[in-house]
Simulated assay, not measured.
Amino acid sequence: MTKIAADLQTIAPGINYKTVSRYTGILERLFAVEAIPPWSGSLKNRANLRRSPKYVLADPSLATAVLRATPPALFADLQTAGFIFEATVLHDLAVTVEALGGSLNHFLDSNGNVIDAILTLPDERWATIEVKLGGGAAEAAALKLPRVSQSIDTTKQPAFMAVFTGTGLTRKFENGVITFPLAALAP
């Protein structure tokens, strides 16, 4: 909430943590935003886990409507398109994993290690997911995922590690990470 308040200072000078927290609570109750809880596992490297939820729009199309974002505008602003794409993937993953009785979390530690999504199922299987709009960024994410996944102290290795992309082919790297476009996500 403190970071959000700081980010809003240019358009809402003087906004504080309490106000942002109150507004976020209202948006959650209206089902406009969803809080993705942080991963609560322990770490082998003893880095401190960040315990703040990650907030995403419940329906990413809200952002495109509010921004009046047309396809040409999004192609011209790939950073914004990437945020909207990530929110779309997280939404679809949450729907899928929750239907299986599982949960969606995010991961961030004090060493700056980030995983966009960790899926867990009731039988204790888990998976790590990175989200990259462009297929070109998938390779760097695929190389990072095993290293960060190994820092998570669990008795089992991830059932799979994947990088969701906006476009591109399905590819399996030598380290076991699979990349595929969002369109490949199906029951």
Rank of each mutant, 00 (worst) to 15 (best):
V177L: 01
A184H: 14
T10Y: 10
H106W: 14
L100A: 14
Q9N: 11
S103D: 12
A12W: 11
T64H: 02
R125K: 13
T179D: 03
Q9H: 09
F164W: 11
L121I: 09
Q9L: 00
P181L: 00
L108Q: 11
A183Y: 15
S42I: 09
T96K: 11
R51C: 00
A12G: 00
F85V: 09
P37H: 06
L90I: 12
L121K: 09
P60V: 06
L108T: 13
D7T: 03
N105A: 11
A5N: 13
I84N: 06
A81Q: 05
N48L: 10
L100H: 15
L104D: 09
R125A: 07
T96M: 12
T88Y: 01
F173T: 00
F31Y: 15
A65H: 15
G41Q: 07
S40A: 02
T70C: 06
Y23I: 12
V20N: 08
R147H: 11
Q157L: 08
T167K: 09
T19Q: 13
T64D: 06
T167G: 07
R22G: 01
Q150A: 15
L43N: 14
A142L: 05
P71E: 12
D7N: 13
S149W: 12
A12D: 08
S103Y: 06
L74Y: 13
D153H: 09
N45V: 10
L27M: 09
I84G: 08
G168S: 07
V163E: 08
S149R: 01
E28W: 00
P37S: 08
G135A: 10
F180G: 02
A127K: 11
V89L: 07
T24Q: 01
P146K: 03
Y17R: 08
L182H: 12
T80Q: 06
A5Y: 06
A12Q: 15
A5R: 13
T165Q: 08
G136W: 04
T179E: 10
A65C: 11
G166A: 07
E98S: 14
